[in-house]
Design a binder for these strands. Structure first.
Lengths: 191, 191
DNA sequence: GCGAACTAACTAACCGGTTGATTAGTTACA
DNA sequence: TGTAACTAATCAACCGGTTAGTTAGTTCGC
């Protein structure tokens, strides 16, 4: 069952998702245009509503896929949190839209609808890993497990969090240097 | 020349700015509705365009005012960065819209138009204060001054940065506890 | 020929921005 | 002091373009 060319539902779905990811990353939900997404995917609006039901539904699909990818790509390593933060940083470098989509989600989508179970489950697992490592004495207990995990994730996104007015006064740091800052900052939390 | 009641230009401007702050904090620029802002301010759209020129102009006025307030309210204290971060945290608690407006600004407004000179100037001053403190040996030099300053500001916003799926797995921490986490985390960077 | 994939055309509502007129408050002068 | 001329503030109604969502019909693989 090899589908080629113009009638591959799965491929269309994928193109739609990819185009939507770019559009939403750039303009958010309210600012994103369904028409532009359809055009960029070489499809049309009706397909979007057929596959995803609504504009919000399309965004949710993008966000859900993105979360699954991130969870798969960067498994928690409670024994080495600095390197875990570094790996998260790497994944943001590889997929620059992640931080923006997450920010849009926080601002435009939080509170509405249900929480993504895949994300909640993944957070619970991570939390347990950190708490266990603390219980084994591998991690300090200065911060409670949930706070420590939160800080690590928060620090991993440091370089995508600044306002342009701040970037204007920081020297240009290379990708490797920026990664090291993240790793070092997390290490400092554990010292 | 005392103006009271229904014809006070300054008061109208203020009401418009306040209503715009609420609207933009909730829905952003693309999602915010000029009509709703006018209604909430007990005014009308024409006034908005008279006073602020455009929807973007109105947002910029809100953002500019907010930055000035923050810069005034929380002066840098390079000798005591943990407490500085704590003060920033306090100011976010007092004005819950700050972090959201800043996030919208980053996503929707960065790159377009000029940087706000008041913010750039304030960042330069802060940077200098940190660099001086490092030169005097009051602050460690493990991180360059710009990075250290960035990390402190970033950490001060820790509690407004999480996705609801994460909040679902963290225990409810009191405001005082959350403040202490910020202070401690910054202190850890300096140890 | 049957069903799934696809599409152009359509619609109803919305929204940023404008206009032209009205009203409240101030100034100038007899 | 009274009033006419002027200025600044206000607003309802309107406009043209845009947008999310729909529909009804076509194409293509099997």
């Amino acid at each position: 069952m090899v589908l080629v060319g113009s009638r591959d539902a799965e491929a269309t779905r994928r193109r739609l998702l990819e185009a939507a990811r770019e559009e939403f990353a750039a303009y958010g939900i309210a600012g994103g245009r369904v028409e532009r997404i359809a055009a960029a995917a070489r499809s049309n609006k009706a397909q979007i509503y057929h596959y995803f039901g609504s504009k919000d539904g399309l965004f949710d699909a993008v966000f859900d896929a993105m979360c699954r990818e991130t969870v798969d790509a960067v498994p928690i390593d409670a024994e080495n949190l600095p390197e875990y933060a570094g790996k998260l940083f790497d994944s943001y470098e590889r997929r620059p839209w992640v931080q923006r989509i997450a920010a849009w989600y926080r601002l435009e989508r939080a509170g509405t609808g249900d929480l993504l179970t895949v994300v909640v489950a993944s957070n619970e697992a991570k939390l347990k890993a950190v708490a266990d490592a603390q219980a084994r004495g591998v991690l300090p207990t200065r911060f409670p497990a949930d706070v420590l995990l939160g800080l690590v994730i928060h620090l991993s996104g440091f370089w995508s969090s600044n306002v342009p007015e701040f970037d204007a006064v920081v020297a240009g740091h290379s990708s490797a240097t920026r990664r090291q800052v993240v790793v070092d900052a997390v290490a400092a939390l554990l010292a």
